[in-house]
Design a protein around this nucleic acid. Structure first.
Lengths: 356, 356
DNA sequence: CTGTTAGCGCATTCAT
DNA sequence: ATGAATGCGCTAACAG
């Protein structure tokens, strides 16, 4: 395994020059650089990340913390972020942290890993920064992240105290509801939020708030939300709840497309005409939304992830030139990306207006 | 940022003892261990991964190379592998390597990253081992992986020269076809393979071979495969191709459920009754297969990933005790996990037999 | 533009 | 069971 000394010997320069040449620092004569690169190439030399980190204090790695990888939003974020960071030479350390539950004690001899130890032990000293994807955080976790001593960015929601890239979820809820209102619906329910429940969390809660706003502005009473996890299976369950729980609304806002798709299927298999009897609107513009003809509020997922990654890269750059200290106010960035309505075949004028 | 020396001073022992105590080595007196752990805890000491790697030669990290993260098979593998490795204290370095295409040159001053540099530079010295998920490998890449100098495991196909965990894809194609044959179909097509095309690749090619075998055993002539990428959108395209390209078969084997779902939708929106006019069978048992009533050959994805991860962990353990050298024959492991048929509503006896 | 000199923070001998 | 000494391979001053 060739080391930097081998390259230095082969080139007849010092290891310092090899290091500089290979990193592309300006202060190396062009011919020298070329010779060094050639030698490194032919020796198959690859710098040791460990040695480099130890000497420089930088790891050239970023932690990516996510509660899921198979759900659409998260997988898109992961792909986008990995690609942006990789381009700039950063490695991605993937950390999957299931929402809400403590990890099981492992068979290891050492202390079993908990959320706490993962947050600190793993991320501290191993990475130069951390990106967190829409993970419900309790206050203590937020403090832990801020105490990591390096930059942390949040994607998918706006969380106070952390630089965040997301969308305006209140506006999303409002616009989805308004679309149904404009079509003439007055009896509108929302599926997939805990409402103002103290356990309620970020996006679903904010979308419900938008729904409440829109209903209020139309002089209508908002219904309490139908609780439901953001999955197709849960959407189906919610549909059954809707079908058996009193009069069916004519319009339904699903806080995510996955819920919307579940709703669509279950309502139709129960013989309910969508959009004839019930209109359904989702949020996301999931790739399958088109397949199912689901009207939705599209959110730019890759764009959120890319904006966050690029912003982080720029911050890391500034940190480097300022000698490792995070600039004041680094954590005040809050960016909302625009959403837009995508009309498909799951929403229509309510039957009562078509055949009065 | 507390260092091992701080802990040593606080405890009144040497750094060597701190190191041993914190790693749970046997040769430390119980009371000493406790004192050290307490001190480390209260000082918030976290060992530096870089220093530890440099000193020990082990990184406690594993590279995970995948062509996709949003596709179901891959996301399940990623989640499973991360979880298994994390439990044993290994970090996961995620590397997304799009199949087939060279990466674009980045804006960096250094050589733009290519598949080649990623395979070597990134993985060599940064990780103790690498797991590769069903990525079409050309021979050179395979050699590169083997030349990495550390353990490499392949998941999702059986590749000669690399320890592999997968399923019997020929049998999968055979069983899917046999299911249709048993129902009475004779006019059966397969969608999603390049057949014996030299560019053809692993699982789809093997599943086509199984189809050919089953057709042959039934005394029928196999049709050339309908080419199609393994996505819903491509499945829809393939359906249109089927609809316009001569007589429609009565049975269709889709080499993946995503294709199958696309087929189902497009056929039905064209007014073709499934399974009345055409039966469709997929492969995977994708979570959405149930939603669509798609009959399929289920494969155990999490199990493949877990088997590979655990096998790797065991190998790494052996490597450690033998002083860092890979044991002879480490690369000869080839494991096939069982699949099974899941009958749903997309396959039935052909109409010709129902109304003779 | 290049060489010299020091560590970076640990794990590991080899002692005891 | 514990301590002292050594070096992993590189980068960062500091000279020149």
């Amino acid at each position: 395994m060739a080391s930097i000394e081998d390259v230095a010997r082969a080139t007849g320069v010092s290891t310092a020059t090899v290091s500089r040449a290979l990193r592309g620092l300006a202060s190396v004569a062009e011919p020298t650089r070329v010779r060094v690169q050639k030698a490194a190439q032919s020796l198959g030399y690859v710098p040791s990340a460990a040695a480099s980190s130890l000497a420089s204090g930088r790891t050239k790695a970023v932690g990516l913390v996510t509660p899921h990888v198979s759900r659409w939003f998260f997988s898109v974020c992961i792909e986008t972020i990995e690609s942006v960071l990789r381009t700039e030479g950063y490695d991605v350390l993937l950390v999957i942290l299931p929402p809400g539950d403590q990890l099981e004690p492992g068979p290891g001899a050492v202390t079993p890993p908990s959320r706490q130890t993962i947050e600190t032990d793993l991320l501290r000293k191993r990475v130069d920064a951390t990106i967190v994807l829409t993970l419900p955080l309790v206050r203590r976790e937020l403090e832990t992240l801020r105490g990591l001593g390096h930059a942390v960015v949040y994607v998918g929601d706006l969380v106070p105290g952390l630089p965040s890239f997301g969308i305006d979820d209140v506006a999303v809820g409002r616009r989805a509801t308004e679309h149904l209102l404009r079509l003439g619906h007055r009896d509108i329910a929302l599926v997939g939020s805990n409402g103002e429940d103290p356990d309620g969390w970020g996006p679903p809660r904010d979308r419900y708030r938008g729904y409440v706003q829109a209903m209020g502005a139309a002089g209508l009473d908002p219904l309490p939300p139908v609780r439901c996890d953001l999955t197709v299976a849960e959407g189906r369950r919610a549909a059954r709840e809707l079908l058996t729980g009193g009069p069916l609304p004519t319009g339904v806002v699903a806080v995510s497309d996955e819920i919307g798709i579940g709703l669509l299927h279950e309502l139709r298999s129960a013989g309910v005409d969508v959009p004839g009897r019930v209109s359904v609107i989702g949020v996301d513009d999931h790739p399958h939304a088109d397949l199912h003809g689901l009207t939705t509020i599209a959110q730019p997922v890759a764009e959120q992830a890319e904006a966050a990654a690029r912003w982080l890269l720029a911050l890391l750059q500034r940190v480097r030139v300022t000698g490792g200290r995070l600039p004041a106010g680094w954590d005040s960035q809050q960016e909302r990306l625009p959403v837009h309505l995508v009309e498909r075949r799951s929403t229509a004028v309510p039957a009562s207006l078509v055949n009065p």
